[in-house]
Structure formats: C-alpha cells, structure tokens
Write a protein that binds this DNA or RNA. Sequence first.
DNA 1: GTAACTGCAAAATATTTGCATCCTT
DNA 2: AAGGATGCAAATATTTTGCAGTTAC
Lengths: 139, 139
Amino acid sequence: MLHSSDLLKKNGLSITESRKQILELFLLSDGALSHSDIEKKTSAAFDRVTVYRTLQTFVEKGIIHQIPTTDNSILYGLCKDSCEAGHHHDEHVHFLCNSCNKTICLDDVTVPHVKLPNGFKPLQSAMVVKGFCDDCKVS
Amino acid sequence: MLHSSDLLKKNGLSITESRKQILELFLLSDGALSHSDIEKKTSAAFDRVTVYRTLQTFVEKGIIHQIPTTDNSILYGLCKDSCEAGHHHDEHVHFLCNSCNKTICLDDVTVPHVKLPNGFKPLQSAMVVKGFCDDCKVS
DNA sequence: GTAACTGCAAAATATTTGCATCCTT
DNA sequence: AAGGATGCAAATATTTTGCAGTTAC
C-alpha cells in the first residue's frame, strides 16, 4: 500500500501534517470526497483555507482529480499512478450511488469514444453514471 | 420557432416578465447558461433571488436541465421537447469548448452505454466532452 | 379576489486574499 | 537560514429564507 508521505515526496511536495492527513483520507476512502467531507473527517483540525489550498495543490500535481457534479460542489477523487502534473488520465467512469450517495471512481471502465458532429475536436471526456452501487443494489 | 410564452403555458406556469425573458435567453442561446450568465444578459433587471427561483422552477418542470461541471457552478441547458416534469431525457452529450468556453448540448449524440463491474445498476448517465467546437477548431 | 410570484432584507454558507508566524528541508 | 505552508482576519461571493407588496389569472 502506497503511503501518503511517499506520494507527497514523489510529487515534490513538502510533508506536512495537513497534507499527510488529507491525502491519507483519499487513500483510505472508497469514494470521492468533497471539501466539506474532508472538513468533517478531519474534525476541522485544519483551517478551512488550508483545506482549499491543499486540494488545489493536489489537483495541480495530479494526485487527485475533479469530478463533475450537477450540484454546485466539486468532488475530488484519487488519481491512478499514471497521472502526472498537469496531465490527468482521468478518463474513467465515475459512478454516483443514489442510495449511499458515494461517488466511486471506476478506474477500469474507460469512457467510450462518441462520434461528434462534423468539426468538433474532442480532447478529453468525462462520464458520470448514476444508479445503485454493488453494496446498495436490490438483488 | 417555439415562443417562450407557449412553453410556459404548456408547463402550467404563469407568464411573468422574468420567466419570459429568462426562457427567451435559453431559446436564443446556442450554449448552456449559468446563473451569472443570466444576470449579465438581463443586465440584472431581476432580483438575484428571482433568477434562482426561476431556474429551479424550470428544472422542476423539465424545461431546462443541469449540466455537470468541475468548477463549482451549475450550468443549465434547454431541454428537448421530449422532456417532462421530473423525467429528464438529458442523456445527450455535452460539449465544452476550450477556446470560446461555450457549453453546447449535442442533442443528437446520446451517451453510450458502458459495461459496469458486476453488481452496479446504472439508471442514468451524463457525459461531458471537452475540446474545440466547430467554430473554434483549428483547421 | 386569490394564489402565486417578485423584490427586499438579512441570514447562512462558501471562497478568496493578505499577512504574520511557524515549519520543513 | 530560507522558502514555503499554515492560521487568522477580513473581504468577497454565493445561496437560502422570510415576509410584505404586487401581479397573473
């Protein structure tokens, strides 16, 4: 298991309490996290501003990526190893469970290519599927 | 061309100045609009609160739909005729242009089905493709 | 006339910025 | 020791709520 300190070091970031703990949350979480999730899970141990700045830094370094949502919030998910600074490989499908409300990165499900109208040049795609996850499905 | 008053009437909404003008914006716009787009385009003729409530009403009635974004904002796009209250048919692809920054509903491009891991039950999918649109493409 | 809609005020919430202090290297 | 990261204060922005006055039907 990759430890948070290693991951920080690998990305040229200095190792601080807030970065370690916030990154640890992502490593342990099975779903994506929002800013407020992080505040709750760290019991507001860190200043709100620090959380904003830490998340921003992680996104810039390619440690986490942003997941599109239809409410006005941003969700963040851990990137796979293959992500690099400024060059996200986040073309996997995100799954949002209507029951437990977790958002899960389906790292192994890649976003399919679609045929666009003439003249449109696609560069990257994101996909969010809603439904019931494996734990919540009615079988 | 469908007129805003007809569309309001069809959805059982009373016809007011703000609803007419905001809906007109959507009918004339070639891209999706955010709350602040609407404030700008109406020159703040209406109270900010009215805009919030109008957009919410339109979403409930199925006149517009929300488009997922990775910044913390909500974009709204006009629904096709087939949308009904509480039952959106917005499974089309949304295109976000990196150059002109417009978000366009590609009504004719439906979101493809993806094979999910065992146990996941999909109900609806959303897809956003980024790139260059027809107007901005480098040819 | 009545129910629904709007605008205003204000509260609640979220985000950004500047700066002094502290911590990592 | 030096540069970067944090916390605090405060400014700014966004969203929600209650209520009184106005408008559509």
